[in-house]
């Protein structure tokens, strides 16, 4: 191994310029993820369903001539017809408007809770993981304690303090939910900050701000987005469960959960009153799940071919 010079190495069968050429087109992470998501038919169908449901939840109540609060006592428990597409309930309220208004409230709760979880979780988990050591230890024990209290307890406690309502439910579900995101982000940061590319940035003189914004966040954002996608249906379902057991949104405001609850009471007489809210909530849950799975496949670079 005494004399090693460049001219002793020849790349056989290829021009040297060719050897350095790369065949695959250069795509950014996001373009590449979108390409993969598009090729996943189920995920695209789920995404389309979610968009349609969201649009219906926003616009259907606006363009309907009925109001979701006021009923016509002469027209109770009507079957679906051209006048009342989903029929009416026992107070004579139009169910079509109520279902979409309920969807609107449920989606609102799901999205707001997911965003609150995201903001608190990313900040808390990010700081905990970045500082590390005993600070990290202390911060995570606090999360463990919070996490060990079920959200039902939070709802009951907060309802006694704040009264029942949308606000209470959002706060309760967020308190119970952000810990999961914090743990996830903390784990990611703890792992990434030991990566050699973070060391390289430090060696080049990068400060904490730069390391966080240029290196840590871009490399965790995929996992975070996936997690948010799954947090939305979880919150919707938790709210539905609370409404179902009577701890949810107070009347006359509907949510998909309270509508289903009303529907079950009339199940034997008027089954359609359960069918429509149940269909929407199932479609929302299933679509979020399938879309989330698709996103995970698209955003997770470990699955890159």
């Amino acid at each position: 191994m005494a004399e090693l010079s460049k001219d002793k190495f020849i790349i056989e069968g290829k021009e040297s310029s060719e050897a350095e050429a790369i065949v695959r087109p250069s795509l950014t992470y996001w373009a590449d993820a979108w390409r993969r998501l598009k090729s996943n038919k189920m995920a695209i169908i789920a995404m389309t369903i979610l968009i349609i449901i969201t649009l219906a939840a926003i616009f259907a109540p606006i363009f309907s001539s009925y109001d979701y609060r006021t009923g016509d006592l002469l027209k109770t428990n009507l079957k679906p017809s051209s006048e009342h597409w989903f029929g009416t309930d026992e107070l004579g309220r139009d169910l079509y408007v109520r279902v979409w208004e309920g969807t609107r409230i449920s989606l609102f709760i799901g999205i707001v809770v997911a965003l609150l979880n995201f903001t608190i979780g990313v900040l808390y988990g990010g700081i905990s993981g970045y500082i590390g050591g005993s600070v990290d230890n202390l911060m995570m024990r606090f999360v463990d304690i919070l996490f060990s209290i079920p959200y039902l307890i939070w709802v009951i406690m907060l309802t006694t303090v704040l009264g029942s309502g949308l606000f209470t439910i959002i706060i309760a579900l967020s308190i119970a939910g952000w810990g999961g995101m914090a743990r996830l982000v903390r784990g990611q940061v703890l792992q990434l900050k030991e990566m050699e590319y973070v060391m390289a940035a430090k060696t080049l003189g990068a400060d904490a701000g730069r390391i966080i914004t240029k290196h840590l966040i871009p490399n965790t954002i995929g996992v975070i987005i996936i997690s948010i996608t799954f947090a939305v249906p979880t919150a919707i379902f938790s709210e539905a469960f609370l409404s179902f057991i009577g701890l949810g949104i107070p009347v006359p405001n509907p949510s998909l959960g309270s509508l289903s609850n009303d529907g079950t009471r009339m199940l034997l007489l008027e089954p359609y009153q359960l069918v429509f809210p149940a269909l929407v909530i199932s479609a929302v849950m299933l679509s979020f799940q399938i879309f989330g799975d698709g996103l995970r496949d698209a955003l997770d670079p470990r699955l890159r071919q």
């Binding site: 992470y29 050699e196 590319y197 940035a201 003189g205 290196h215 871009p218």
Partner: peptide, 23 residues
């Protein structure tokens, strides 16, 4: 210290972990 980082640099062991995949 910032000036020092300009004068002393490092080349890393693992070529797969030493480049940020998002840049």
């Amino acid at each position: 210290l910032k000036n020092f980082t300009k004068q002393a640099q490092m080349i890393f062991q693992d070529p797969y972990a030493s480049l940020n995949p998002r840049m």
